[in-house]
């Protein structure tokens, strides 16, 4: 009896949450277009990913929705099983590099960080991170190269190299399922604001900001593509269009290119600030690295 009452109470609460006008509006935004014609949950290795979470009060969204939800069933399915996820070709490379000695100091990542499944847990969820010595935030790629050049005596990897993509995918995977949780207070506040300014700034001959598509029009089709909220919880991500895995900054550049603007450089202060800001708009979504998108 107690159990029944509890279940009833839970259902009532759940229903109340579900029908809040704002949430209903958000659901309609993507549901109406036949998105959930084949309903699916993102469960990988028996772990359920949070692909839809209630947004905090200060969010421009009422619900935070992972890019996975906006993709067609075929693309969504590819992320359900790591054997079907082509990004794992790079993950395997990253795993191998983790314990490969490189540079003048005779070290590998494992020399200091040992077992990645332990030491790298939660790392992806918290990047970009403040770096006191550098006096600015670092994306994960910056951090990897800092280790390589300053502690291993090895050459920096190029941002979009297979090694860097493999390493960031492998390290990122150790946080899969954990909620995105970036620090935006203290010295990060100024960088967060800089990222926000970039997000709302119109650029290019087509005169659009990130917000025009990803805040004002997500869920709608723009020609053959469905606009998402531009959440970044799955990066680096395997993109069918690229036929390979790619970095978030590559994706940023692609968007700017489309609106006939000159993109910033990968690893630039601008893109790092934008990464921080966009990550903060997805606080609480599960890390899906390495995700699969169209």
């Amino acid at each position: 009896m107690m159990k029944l009452m509890m279940a009833g109470a839970f259902a009532t609460v759940a229903a109340a949450v579900f029908v809040t006008a704002a949430a209903a509006q958000d659901s309609a935004n993507i549901g109406e277009q036949g998105l959930q014609t084949e309903p699916m949950e993102l469960v990988i290795d028996d772990e359920k990913m949070m692909t839809r979470v209630k947004a905090p009060a200060d969010s421009p969204f009422t619900e935070l929705i992972s890019g996975w939800e906006f993709r067609n069933p075929g693309t969504r399915k590819m992320e359900l099983d790591d054997f079907d996820n082509p990004a794992f070709i790079w993950v395997e490379q990253g795993e191998e590099l983790w314990s490969t000695v490189d540079g003048t100091e005779g070290k590998s990542c494992a020399t200091c960080h040992e077992d990645a499944s332990d030491s790298m847990k939660g790392v992806r969820a918290a990047f970009p991170k403040w770096d006191e010595a550098k006096g600015k935030p670092q994306a994960m790629e910056h951090q990897v190269n800092e280790c390589r050049t300053e502690r291993m005596g090895a050459d920096a990897w190029k941002w979009e190299s297979d090694q860097m993509l493999g390493m960031t995918a492998y390290v990122g995977l150790q946080s899969r399922g954990m909620p995105v949780q970036v620090e935006i207070d203290g010295p990060m506040q100024e960088w967060w604001q800089r990222g926000k300014d970039l997000y709302y700034q119109r650029v290019g001959q087509l005169d659009m900001s990130c917000a025009n598509c990803h805040e004002d029009n997500y869920g709608k089709m723009i020609r053959a593509d469905r606009l998402s909220q531009g959440q970044i919880n799955g990066f680096p991500t395997y993109r069918l269009k690229w036929q390979k895995i790619g970095s978030l900054h590559r994706r940023f550049k692609g968007c700017m290119q489309n609106i006939r603007a000159v993109g910033y450089k990968r690893g630039s202060d601008e893109f790092t600030a934008l990464e921080l800001y966009v990550a903060s708009r997805g606080q609480g979504l599960s890390v899906e690295t390495p995700a699969v998108r169209q």
Binding site: G204, L206, M208, A261, V262
Partner: peptide, 23 residues
Amino acid sequence: IMPSFYRIINDQRTQEKFHNKTI
């Protein structure tokens, strides 16, 4: 969100090939 099809926009990091051109 609609682009302005007959306005010159050179100062928004516009790619050079679109400078002084309308859409």
